[in-house]
Design a protein around this nucleic acid. Structure first.
Lengths: 271, 271
DNA sequence: AAGTGGTCTAGACCACTAA
DNA sequence: TAGTGGTCTAGACCACTTT
């Protein structure tokens, strides 16, 4: 049985109300495939009919078929492999606890064992974590300058990290420090370093409070490359402003988490 | 001066390494426009050249121009208005404090004033909040059933909400309650109701703890309609599992927040 | 009436993969 | 070598908005 039977074999009636614009051929094809994917009739990883076959099925030109498939790709439902075919997309999200990893309590358990909270958690799941770190002194992005209250023209220290699980990039984490906070401390060290208690403590600042700002958006082209993102992958931008006990913003971290690989988890206990 | 001068006037050299696939005409056009948008040369709200003009500029066919513009639309950088033109997309995000709105402390301040935390916050910003609520008894979505530990076949009570600011939808919030928790309580009331202390308290359950799971993704077609989303709008799915003092999961809330209208903010104080 | 975007077709050439 | 997706062109018709 063909899983692609259209539920509307009749050509769509021209609608007098153009409020809901009449369904196009592209919409109908995408709609049929979408329905079958969401219903599980086309399971994750399954191969879709070729463009040729879909064209015959719907008596549509190749351009139309490709537009329908592109629609689904942008919805994150389909990936295409050049020269091979189109496939139902699979998701492998990993949980990530941004409020927990930095708490002093968890630090005690994991950091002394020679790994940060994230890496320890990945290991606990039987996966292999890896980090690529670059350190540089740069002009801060405008938002960072604002949150750190950087005087205009002044530079900041940045640690740019890509974190990988089993060899595939899972997220980026770029930290920004005022120069007076970072210089002469282990923060300036390149490479994947682990300091018991964390980098902030090593720099003589206790991070007493932080504010997280999370927003979903489409990735920039740079992020698409850095994280090897397929079409239709939304990311969460997770911006953390860390304050020391004097109430000064001493660090901004911007993490970019692709939705196909990450779930952000917060646990909150009522007062 | 034309803001659209290509930075690579020379036709791209055919690259021998196909690792980084050679830049296509579409990429070049999209790249030029993207650069000007991100640099602010094309400001938010600005009108782009028409497809006709771009075609002449780049000596490309209309299909190619449209593909470039579609690329940018899917990145959330451009919106097109039929019969009018293409425009640089504008963003108007509103801050949203999921950990604060439900805390007993804020409840005291705002709920007694006749509004929930979200609505009160919107009013404080001089905007007009509005809620559309439907109540129904339904079969729970699989994930909800899992978190609520609903016996298979059993139904749950759902409150489906759309929250609007100044008339435009800002997010959806669908709550799910086990029937024994909801029935005979104000939870079953349709419409925009406000109970001092919150609905959970009115049902005799103190929400002692909750777990938030946030993940970015592309919206479903239903969400595109419900929230009136333009192309290229990512959403954050914010799932909250609420536990009572006995440790039982008594509510699941699924909120869908479009990234062009929302920033999720958490404030965390170190122990 | 002119301009603009929305949709569709038919045909072409390319690069890559698999039999 | 045949099949598959990736890119591009040229032309057509439509609906809508503005002049």
């Amino acid at each position: 049985m063909n899983p692609l039977e259209s539920e509307n074999d009749v050509p769509p009636e021209p609608q007098e109300r153009n409020m809901s614009p009449q369904q196009t051929t592209t919409d109908r094809i995408a709609g049929d495939l979408r329905r079958d994917i969401l219903a599980g009739k086309l399971a994750p990883g399954a191969k879709l009919p070729s463009e040729q076959e879909l064209g015959d099925l719907y008596s549509a030109s190749r351009g139309t078929i490709r537009r329908a498939l592109e629609l689904l790709a942008n919805e994150g439902l389909v990936v295409s492999r050049s020269g091979i075919g189109h496939y139902v997309r699979e998701y492998f999200p990993l949980e990530w606890y941004p409020a927990v990893f930095e708490s002093p309590r968890t630090r005690k358990d994991t950091a002394e064992a020679g790994a940060d909270g994230w890496a320890a958690d990945v290991v606990a799941r039987g996966r292999v974590p890896e980090q690529k770190v670059e350190v540089a002194i740069v002009a801060p992005p405008p938002r960072v300058a604002e949150f750190l209250a950087t005087p205009s023209g002044e530079l900041v220290v940045t640690r740019r990290r890509v974190r990988l699980v089993d060899g595939t990039p899972y997220h980026t984490a770029d930290s920004y420090y005022p120069r007076d906070v970072a210089e002469g401390t282990p923060i300036m060290q390149a490479g994947d370093i682990t300091i018991p208690g964390g980098l902030m403590a090593a720099a003589g600042h206790r991070q007493a409070r932080f504010v997280d700002r999370i927003t979903p958006r489409m990735p920039t082209q740079e992020e698409v490359i850095r994280l090897e993102l397929p079409r239709g992958t939304a990311v969460a931008e997770h911006l953390r402003i860390g304050f020391n006990e004097a109430g000064r913003a001493v660090r901004v971290i911007i993490q970019v988490l692709p939705g196909d690989r990450n779930v952000i988890v917060y646990e909150v206990t009522a007062e």
